[in-house]
């Protein structure tokens, strides 16, 4: 739970300044930017995501490092499941109801 997931900002929404579409190894989900409001990321920036909120901006190199760390920790699959579950869009998730 204290491990953050790296992702890249691929789209910003004009009508929602505190949200962005983030790509995490091909999976795209809307992520909250509220915690970065003092220094909002722009398209192409990399961020660390934690429970659906971008927590900090990082470099691309660090993003790659972080993904490798998650893989080495055996946590990459759980991380991807988390990302897929953002927005309750995962069928496994809604099925659970």
């Amino acid at each position: 739970m204290c491990l953050a997931i790296p992702g890249q900002v691929v789209e910003l929404f004009a009508d929602q300044p505190t949200a962005a579409l983030i790509d995490v190894v091909g999976v795209r989900r809307k992520v909250d930017l509220g915690l970065l409001q003092d220094d909002l990321p722009v398209k192409g920036d990399w961020v660390l995501i934690h429970v659906g909120f971008a927590m900090s901006k990082i470099s691309e190199e660090d993003a790659i490092d972080q993904m490798r760390t998650l893989r080495m920790l055996g946590e990459a699959e759980a991380a991807m499941q988390e990302v897929e579950g953002y927005g309750l869009e995962d069928t496994r998730n809604t099925k659970a109801s």
């Binding site: 659906g52 579950g85 953002y86 309750l88 998730n93 659970a96 109801s97």
Partner: peptide, 11 residues
């Protein structure tokens, strides 16, 4: 019980 997993408080 109606128990749901969420991955984010905003969900």
């Amino acid at each position: 019980m109606d128990v749901r997993i969420v991955y984010s408080p905003s969900d």
